[in-house]
Design a protein around this nucleic acid. Structure first.
Lengths: 130, 130, 130, 130
DNA sequence: GTGGTCTAGACCACA
DNA sequence: GTGGTCTAGACCACT
């Protein structure tokens, strides 16, 4: 299908998978009711343990984004906040990509850009505070 | 000093510290030769074990960003790509903050924004590839 | 496995371990892909804290000589300069041992021999310079 | 005078100084009764704290290699095992340098050579033993 | 089972 | 005072 795991960021595979499925749902790449690849199939594709895929699916099920039907597979169930989210996410996605592109052209590297986002999102208004 | 740890993102304390020190160096908040707070001092401030701070310092030393001198302290040693980086990073920082602010006002949440960044930075041109 | 710590040279345990793993890799005793003993296992054998082993492993991972896989173990990853290095190192190893044996028979002691090496390696062409 | 400190090997300055003074004595570069540079003078030359030089001198005095005469300075006092040592050390020194040169030409790097000596001197007959 | 993080504190080395 | 090493053990994350 259309997922890709990155071994060089310290993030667990199952979290990366969850993020990408969430993103696919938010951006409209996956629609309500769409079927996801089988656990074993996807595990083979990504060259990870089936447990890893199972964990991602299972956590997304607890979150209410997936429905696991025994014997049939995993299906997207989008209900929440869905109105208009897709459009906004797609627009936002474009803006984010544009900004990253722009920063690249100014000579910044991925890890530096990453650091800026991190700082802005998670340490906002805290650096320099004291 | 001016660091802050966030317990709610799954990132290890020592990595957060490293990121913030790197960011302080890149943004000019810390200059070449500046002395950092002592290990025990900083550990108390952040309410973590001295070992945690020591690990961050030590890894940054391997990276070449810090110089640890027994008996004297920890000092920033910026050599790399430094010319003009400060200005570009500060400008970039503003752009990133502006974009995040804008996306907030469109109703996106932090985790969704984070997801967009992750996707754009780490899975660039890979989604939809297969 | 086949490591030994020496308490009478002032070198930290974790550094000694790193050196011996590096040497095992360079001399061919450990091959690319080989799995190393588990952290706790090795710690018990060497009668040190698991943290000490973990630190050695972790630093070697940063160096690119080891790959640590959560849940699976530690594996050697030799990429660098590897062709033919093994043979040269083994030959060199023999020469070094022969020379040390020879110097012993001339009545020199280990610490004097060590001093000669140190001088030749680290202060080369510098003694007598000023 | 003729000492040089190396910051990139993790060895304390005062130990490096001691090693070099010992080596100078063993190799005949310094003779019995020779006066060493004053503590403050040497400290300035090497850009270290006078304490560091004082410590090296003091430890060598305990070892019996130096005599510190209040107000006059530090003097070498070679008594021990001295007969013929100088010649043997000089010969050994040449052999060591030759071997290192040879290994360099075979493409080995300093740290690899160092590792070989370390292994041969300190972990002799222990690697591979179990 | 594996590795990863963190703690609280001891003891040493250096300035 | 500084940093450096090490311990013993807890708890978590991943396979």
């Amino acid at each position: 299908m259309f997922f890709k795991l990155n071994t060089s960021i310290g993030q667990p595979f199952y979290v990366q998978l969850m993020q990408q499925i969430r993103h696919a749902a938010e951006s409209g790449a996956l629609q309500d009711g769409d079927q996801l690849p089988g656990i074993r199939t996807l595990a083979e594709e990504l060259v990870v343990s089936p447990n890893t895929v199972a964990r991602a699916y299972s956590e997304l099920e607890h979150e209410g984004l997936l429905e696991l039907r025994q014997g049939s597979g995993a299906f997207l169930t989008i209900k929440r906040r869905a109105r208009g989210l897709t459009e906004r996410v797609q627009a936002a996605s474009r803006k984010v990509e544009d900004l990253i592109e722009e920063l690249h052209q100014e000579g910044l590297q991925d890890n530096e850009i990453w650091r800026l986002f991190e700082t802005a999102l998670f340490h906002r208004a805290e650096i320099g505070a004291e």
